[in-house]
Design a protein around this nucleic acid. Structure first.
Length: 645
RNA sequence: GCCGAUGUAGCUCAGUUGGUCAGAGCAGCUGAUUUGUAAUCAGCUGGCCGGGGGUUCGAAUCCCUCCAUCGGCUCCA
């Protein structure tokens, strides 16, 4: 007998050779129906692979990440099988599962497929799925594997196998499709009940621009038809919330081919929204001891030679601007830190002055490849809510904690309740890649880890993901649709203080090198506004939204009273509009609702007589009659609730 | 930059195989209406069918090219 330890620490005894599926059956029929794969001592495996020794196991269903991965990976094989049947002679690259579904990179030779062909392929996939073709694992020597694919003429698989270590290689066969694959897979194709191909794209073989471009077909699959329906509805909802669409509808921002691609134009309402965000952060930062600074939009080439950016990005940036007579070269500012280093250098500092925190909403320009541009999330000109903290090495941790506090405060004010962090550390096996002393790295990494622990942040630590100049902490949020976005970042930097020869005088009267912390809680205003729009679908928090209330007079007769209310609300600094059109109240309400204005204030005969307003809340309806003062109080409370620390 | 797709009024979209095909709804403007919690009625103005070139007796429709947008790839200080 072997001992199988389940995740709840209970131990069950089985005969050696038991399979995951049999274990599942011994627990419950329902689990046996839904289980997709199994982890054995931390390694994800096929359900039907026998287990011969004591092991800790976990059974995976579609509810967990591993189960989804198995379903989608097997679906990639299923799609490949369907494509091979429909387009014989197709060569296959790689076909992994991804965050949302799967893809397969294929080489169709002279043919091509487009979304018009999707239905045909989906039908073929379902046809094969219904045959319940088992996924059969086979291990064969590398040499045989090479012969098989050489004969088949599939150079991509040959390429992949050549990179594998000598020995046996695993293959999976389902029906007449055999694929080089580590696994694991579903027991058979029958578990795949619903498939949908989503789009196609070009993808370089092995991600290498110089190699051949294959056709990548994306798809997703589910164990139930209903789940596919829900997924498609989620996609629809995401489409409705697309910040490019809402940005146009709500007149927040626009692009103009004449101004240039990737250069956003902030319209009055968008500018208002952004200013509200900036005002909020400026206030928070002032309290946290930041000093505002302002630096120009261009900088001398020498600045970027010193910072190292010229060497690294000079060729791939906008061409330099040269002066007519002297021929001096200037670059559009791609980041604020070099300027801020020079601001720091303008003065001598004692250890008692540290930390020095310089903040700027600095607009930067970066050349992004044309195909990369995307709405407000990827642009060529954007504004960072940037700040650089120059501190002593022993202050890194407390500064980190203070920055985390700011980030969390912002998340609360903007209703992002689901967030996590990623700590990126250096790869200790490859220290040459990084600059800065071991001591400083260890201190900084320890500081980041401790700071996140003290703040109770959940997240993962990834070694080898640090920048060459220091470790970093990135914040990820999930929006209302469960999509993950990377927002703020905090980075420790040993490089720039060195390059700019920054120093402060210590208690020992010697010169010391400060540590620099880059931080941007929003990241960029453009990107953040985009995420914000998609998170709330354009229904911004009251304190942020460009127009907070709109007065709807029942008829022209009450315009005078409407103006009076308007003036009173102005005194309370409530951003208010009046709808003076000769429309019926129903129409005015409908329009205000579509414009996503939080409060509609209806004024007619009754209200004028009693000096009140009838308040209707967006998305909710009539909430009763208020005096202007009472309404102002309501707005104030709702605002404070969000933005107070 | 690369692969693929798309581009018709401010917005959303119709326009069969090239031959009254330049249209609709919303928005906008004008007038009437003076309105009570998600659309009052009527009339009118909007487009060189993304730009340029070509094929043709004839192009929104076919071809080339450029531009922009979309989905990815590569990139992202």
């Amino acid at each position: 007998m072997i001992k199988i330890t389940l995740p709840d620490q209970s131990i069950k005894q089985f005969n050696p050779g038991i399979t995951g599926l049999e274990i599942a059956k011994s627990i419950s029929e329902g689990l046996a129906r839904n289980v997709l794969s199994i982890s054995v001592n931390g390694e994800t495996r096929d359900l039907h692979r026998p287990i011969h020794e004591d092991a800790r196991i976990k059974l995976h269903t579609f509810d967990d990440r591993e189960g989804k991965a198995t379903m989608w990976h097997s679906s990639a094989h299923l799609m490949a099988a369907a494509i091979e049947e429909l387009y014989p002679g197709t060569k296959f690259g790689i076909g992994p599962d991804i965050d949302q579904g799967f893809y397969y990179d294929i080489d169709l030779g002279d043919r091509s497929i487009s979304s018009n062909d999707f239905e045909k392929i989906e039908q073929k996939m379902l046809e094969i799925a219904r045959r319940k073709e088992p996924f059969v694992r086979k291990e064969i020597p590398k040499k045989e594997a090479l012969e098989y694919y050489s004969e088949k003429g599939d150079e991509y698989k040959v390429d992949l196998i050549n990179d594998l270590e000598d020995g046996t290689i695993s293959f999976y066969t389902s029906g007449n499709f055999t694929d080089l694959c580590r696994g694991p897979h579903l027991p058979d194709t029958g578990t795949i009940k619903a498939v949908k191909l989503l789009n196609t794209a070009g993808a370089y073989w092995r991600g290498d621009e110089s190699r051949k471009q294959l056709t990548r077909v994306y798809g997703i699959s589910f164990p139930r038809q209903k789940m596919l329906k829900e997924y498609m509805e989620m996609l629809e909802e995401a489409k409705k919330r697309d910040h490019r669409k809402i940005g146009r509808e709500m007149e927040l921002f626009a692009f103009s081919a004449k101004v240039g691609q990737g250069l956003p134009l902030w319209l009055p309402k968008g500018a208002e929204l952004r200013e509200n965000l900036e005002k909020f952060l400026k206030q928070v930062q002032r309290k946290a001891g930041y000093k505002p600074v302002i630096s120009p939009h261009i900088g001398h080439k020498n600045l970027y030679v010193t910072s190292g950016h010229y060497e690294k990005y000079g060729e791939d940036s906008f061409r330099p601007i040269t002066t007519p007579s002297e021929g001096e070269e200037f670059f559009l500012k791609p980041m604020n830190c070099p300027h801020h280093c020079e601001i720091y250098k303008n003065k001598q500092y004692s250890y008692k002055d540290m930390p020095v925190r310089l903040a700027e909403f600095g607009t930067v320009y970066r050349y992004e490849q044309s195909g990369e541009l995307h709405g407000l999330t990827r642009v060529r000109g954007f504004t960072q809510d940037d700040a650089h903290i120059f501190c002593r090495p022993d202050q890194v941790k407390e500064e980190f904690i203070a920055v985390i506090d700011i980030v969390l405060h912002i998340f609360k004010a903007l209703d992002f309740s689901d967030y996590s962090v990623q700590i990126s550390l250096r790869n200790p096996a490859n220290k040459e890649k990084y600059i800065g002393s071991d001591e400083n790295w260890e201190r900084a990494e320890k500081a980041i880890i401790e700071a996140t622990e003290e703040k109770g942040l959940t997240g993962e630590i990834v070694t080898g993901e640090a920048a060459f100049y220091g470790p970093k902490l990135d914040f990820m949020v999930r929006d209302a649709l469960g999509r993950k976005w990377q927002l703020g970042t905090i980075q420790v930097d040993y490089n720039l203080p060195e390059r700019f020869d920054l120093e402060y005088t210590g208690a020992d009267n010697l010169k010391h090198r400060p540590v620099m912390i880059h931080r941007a809680p929003f990241g960029s205003m453009e990107r953040f506004v985009a995420v914000m729009i998609e998170h709330c679908g354009g229904n911004f928090p009251l304190w942020l939204t460009p127009d907070q209330a709109i007065i709807l007079p029942i008829s022209e007769k009450y315009e005078k009273y409407a103006k009076k209310v308007f003036n009173l609300l102005n005194n309370y600094e409530i951003r208010t509009l009046i709808d003076e059109r000769s429309e019926k109240t129903g129409k005015k309400i409908r329009d205000a609702e579509t414009r996503k204005i939080p409060y509609m204030l209806i004024v007619g005969e009754k209200e004028e007589a009693s000096e009140t307003i009838s308040v209707r809340k967006h998305g909710e309806g009539d909430i009763g009659v208020f005096s202007v003062d009472a309404f102002a109080k309501l707005v104030e409370e709702e605002t404070l609730k969000m933005i107070q620390p």
